[in-house]
Nucleic acid binder design. Structure first.
Lengths: 224, 224
DNA sequence: CACTGTGAACTTATTCACAGCT
DNA sequence: AGCTGTGAATAAGTTCACAGTG
């Protein structure tokens, strides 16, 4: 229970559990079983119990899990119970603006604290209460402030250099919307959101035959 | 090689391969080995060869893969070589607008053909060359046109009903930006993009201790 | 000769099944 | 009685290693 490496795939499910527990709390639920939670999430009860067992024993036998208590434990495990996580945002095009305007980050305990762009037309402007700074000043900003998370919302061509700058500046977790593959040093997490790739892979299941074949691919619900 | 079920995880990597092959073609490369392609993508060469072997034999021994040829095969396998894939978009808030404005869909062979919202202030307005229709008219529109893909960019509360409407209307592949878990019938693919969950799971690796513990989680590059 | 294509070996992830609490 | 927590069993996914081939 103590010195095994916890699989990333397990870590990635924790936010899902935490989110659903938040909803349950909102519905006034005090306790929930792995059975019912799994049913709501499309996950097996055994999966949930096994995942949680990596971190400790949070349930009460015969009763299930205390909804708010477990949610707090999960957020604590994820490191989300301290102060708000500060992020820099690079790129204030349409997508960057949507990121800034999206309330979900704030609610989740994340906050964009500084915004950068390379477009002279944007630099100096105010977008959603944030002064847009020249991306050229990003390195010095990172040096001063040690922000550990970043969001990249720049065009593909610009992304590699932006990501390098973030990494060099000590940013350890990067969420990129740019469709480019890059490798980053050990210890840095880079995750990409690429809606086009999602659509492309889903297209496979739309029974269009490929070339001459007519095959029947059918598969199950995937909630990512 | 012929009647085995192809794992979804393999399908999901095909767009990644196709994308990189497109870049290679742009660089003027004619052939590439699984070795080099894997290196560029952070994937093992064996993985690439194994993935491709589900669909046929596309390589030339001693030479590697013909860049443009393989790209076309992959796009064909995914069903992306026919005409443009038409999609409906539900929700034209900030996020929906970003989706509409994003050129990547167009380039990938996807096109938003109709836009819906429930907000009376939006309905009837023109957004990025699209007339915004009342979401109440979505069912009849789907009945008429049999669009098979949809993008959901509405708030979480509205998402379940929108998704149900899409499913009932015959939409078989749905990309949702709303942070809600839903189950859909067999044969329908629902994929969610949830940046907050990505950030939350990455936060785990930012060496914030959880409660009293100080542990050392370090893991490798993850490009989704 | 440098590569692919692929069974076999291995590793990782999921599910089972049941002992043990409450 | 009804649940959790968890080793053991199974399934899924990845990598190895090498025969085969242009």
């Amino acid at each position: 229970m103590s010195e095994i490496e916890i699989p990333d795939i397990v870590i990635r499910r924790l936010p899902l559990y935490a989110r659903e527990l938040g909803l349950l709390a909102g519905e006034g639920r005090d306790f929930i079983s792995s059975q019912e939670l799994g049913h709501r999430l499309g996950v097996t009860p055994a999966q949930i119990r096994k995942d949680l067992s990596y971190f400790g024993r949070f349930g009460k036998r015969g009763r299930g899990y205390e909804v708010l208590g477990l949610r707090e434990r999960l957020r604590s495990i994820l490191g989300l119970n301290g102060r708000v996580k500060e992020m820099v945002l690079v790129g204030v095009g349409q997508l960057g603006r949507a990121v800034l305007g999206y309330g979900g980050f704030r609610l989740g305990g994340f906050e964009v604290v500084r915004v950068f762009d390379s477009d002279p037309n944007q630099i100096g402007r105010k977008v959603d209460n944030h002064q847009v700074d020249d991306v050229a000043t990003l390195p010095e900003y990172l040096q001063k402030t040690r922000v550990s998370m970043g969001i990249v919302a720049v065009p593909a061509e610009a992304a590699p250099s932006v990501i390098d700058t973030l990494v060099d500046g000590g940013v350890r977790a990067i969420l990129s919307y740019a469709p480019v593959t890059m490798s980053v040093p050990h210890g840095v997490r880079l995750r990409q959101i690429d809606p086009v790739m999602e659509l492309e892979s889903m297209a496979y299941y739309l029974e269009e035959p490929f070339d001459g074949y007519i095959e029947d691919h059918q598969a199950d619900v995937t909630t990512n």
